[in-house]
Nucleic acid binder design. Structure first.
Lengths: 152, 152
DNA sequence: CTTGAAAAGAACTGCCT
DNA sequence: AGGCAGTTCTTTTCAAG
């Protein structure tokens, strides 16, 4: 595990928010030179702290205004059941996230749909027909705030 | 709302997975020239389809191995209650995501902690003391798969 | 750590099919 | 719409303080 100082943490926080910033602009904001900032970023990347860089899409602009979280309990929970379920879920394009969890539910799915009618179609024809599905709990996303989370 | 063809969708899918690819490498994979690819990306950016670009951190490498999802019901649900709750939640660094939802619960929080003992500390001292908290449901994350979701 | 400079690569432009 | 060729800008690496 790598040691991070305050500057490293500031760099990570800034880049988690917006990874388009370059080393010179970021360095300017932190009182560092461009090469110094760049070396720190490279060090963090090499240490595996930085896992990747992803594009953030505006689902609304793409015509997908509805996000629903589904909590799912499986009726049968053998090893085969989990694998069957996960394989089947992976084939549904409207599923954006599959979270295998321990607690009240077995899985949590993030479903993206054009509108409520579209969501109903996905729910009836895709989700309810998944192998082993038991109880299903639904929560419609109203708004969402993402934060950097704890660093170091 | 912008019209997307197959190539645009392929570009978005590729960049959602890995935004470090440049226009020439991406174009090569799709049978397009660098400028053609670049122009499409710029068009998508200008149209607002691309909301941003974020760094993905490896929480394990940072020493935060535990992720817990909390479903929270508020005891009192006036406008002021929601705002008080959201303000207080925003001050907790271990909270990575705040989702305001409609359904069985009022909020869903993604909590990141070093280990279970650390999570207990956050739960007792930070979460349970939030203004207006009623029922709390917890699910521990075992594994997670992120997918591009539907595009166009 | 810094500055400065050079090499490499990516982004951007204009013109043509 | 796409490709090609060229220009500009940024990133990356290195030398030296």
């Amino acid at each position: 595990m790598i040691e991070l100082d305050t500057l490293d943490r500031k760099i990570l926080r800034a880049l988690v928010e917006d990874a388009t910033q370059n080393a010179s602009a970021l360095g300017r904001a932190l009182g560092l030179s461009q090469p110094a900032t760049w070396r720190r970023i490279k060090r963090l990347r090499d240490a595996g702290v930085i896992a990747g860089q992803r594009l953030d899409l505006d689902r609304e602009a793409l015509g997908f205004g509805v996000v629903v979280f589904l909590g799912i309990k499986l009726a049968t929970k053998g090893r085969v059941s989990l694998e069957d379920f996960e394989r089947a879920v992976s084939a549904i394009p409207e599923v954006q996230t599959v979270e295998h969890i321990l607690g009240v539910y077995d899985y949590r799915l993030r479903i993206v749909a054009r509108d409520i009618a579209d969501f109903e179609r996905v729910l009836r024809r895709r989700i309810m027909t998944l192998p082993g599905v038991g109880d299903v709990e639904a929560n419609v996303l109203l708004s969402e705030e993402r934060r950097p989370g704890p660093i170091g």
